[in-house]
């Protein structure tokens, strides 16, 4: 099967919970090897979108293509084949609280491979090192801090060397130093291993440091899509307001009239 340009394509997807419309005919394409940052107000459906991409939530209408396969009508077995290429970091980390940290990270290896105990152990240690955690192998998730749980969740998402990684707020709740490390890790994975990533984040430092593409969701649709440079120069009040309130300093110096208008109003 020839490889498609787009690793993930969302076509006219609608999703409502009861009366509440969350996605409203969303179109979105993510080329292979890119890191797409999804921005949008709290409750606008970012986590829902990630779950739709992972095949965890059914769509009302529309199509979702992952690595050349339309997944919305797939049966469990072929869907699971595709899911093995996906690593997902949940907003809540979603660690199995009946298992130790090591068992959490080893879960996919235990379930889907015949690797020996030592080999699995080695991978677990290696992934924990990646997220800058050590000596927590035998702890339970309840014994970890929020930021540590998030990093274990990330280590678990990386354990099976996924081609696609879905990150739901990877740096929320982390201290600035760890934040920077996680950002670097995400960039490394993207550049060295050529994984395709989707990152939901409210953290503009993180967004601009890892994103090669960005999209802004508003009322269930995308209102802006492009490279970080494109977005900074876009003339859209909703977008600029969003970027501005969490933006690193260098962005504020860009010569953009809409942005200026907000900055001006802010400093007066």
């Amino acid at each position: 099967m020839p490889k498609t340009i787009f690793m993930i394509s969302i076509k006219n997807v609608r999703k409502a919970f009861g009366e509440k419309k969350v996605l409203n005919g969303l179109d979105l394409e993510i080329p292979r090897g890119e890191t797409l940052v999804i921005m949008g107000r709290s409750g606008c459906g970012k986590s829902v979108l990630l779950k739709i991409i992972a095949g965890l939530l059914p769509v009302d209408t529309g199509q979702v293509w992952v690595d050349g396969t339309e997944i919305t009508k797939l049966k469990r077995k072929p869907l699971n084949e595709i899911r093995r290429k996906i690593g997902m970091l949940f907003q809540s980390a979603a660690l199995f609280d009946s298992m130790t940290v090591a068992e959490n990270i080893a879960f996919m290896l235990d379930q889907h491979t015949d690797l020996s105990q030592q080999e699995v152990r080695k991978i677990v240690d290696e992934k924990l090192k990646l997220v800058d955690l050590q000596g927590v192998q035998e702890l339970r998730p309840a014994q970890l801090s929020g930021g540590m749980r998030k990093r274990v969740g990330l280590a678990r998402a990386l354990a099976f060397n996924p081609e696609i990684i879905l990150y739901d707020e990877p740096t929320t709740g982390l201290d600035p130093v760890t934040c920077t490390e996680i950002n670097e890790l995400m960039r490394d994975l993207n550049q060295k291993l050529e994984v395709t990533s989707v990152v939901v984040t409210h953290d503009m430092h993180s967004a601009f440091s890892v994103g090669t593409l960005m999209v802004m969701l508003y009322e269930g649709k995308q209102i802006a899509y492009g490279t970080p440079d494109d977005l900074i120069n876009e003339d859209n009040p909703v977008l600029q307001q969003f970027i501005l309130f969490g933006a690193p300093d260098q962005i504020l110096n860009i010569d953009n009239p809409t942005l200026k208008q907000f900055t001006g109003r802010n400093t007066e």
Partner: peptide
Amino acid sequence: TMKVTEQIDALEVMGTN
């Protein structure tokens, strides 16, 4: 509890029924 804390989703996404 596993359902509301998204642990069931996590199982699914890791390809386990």
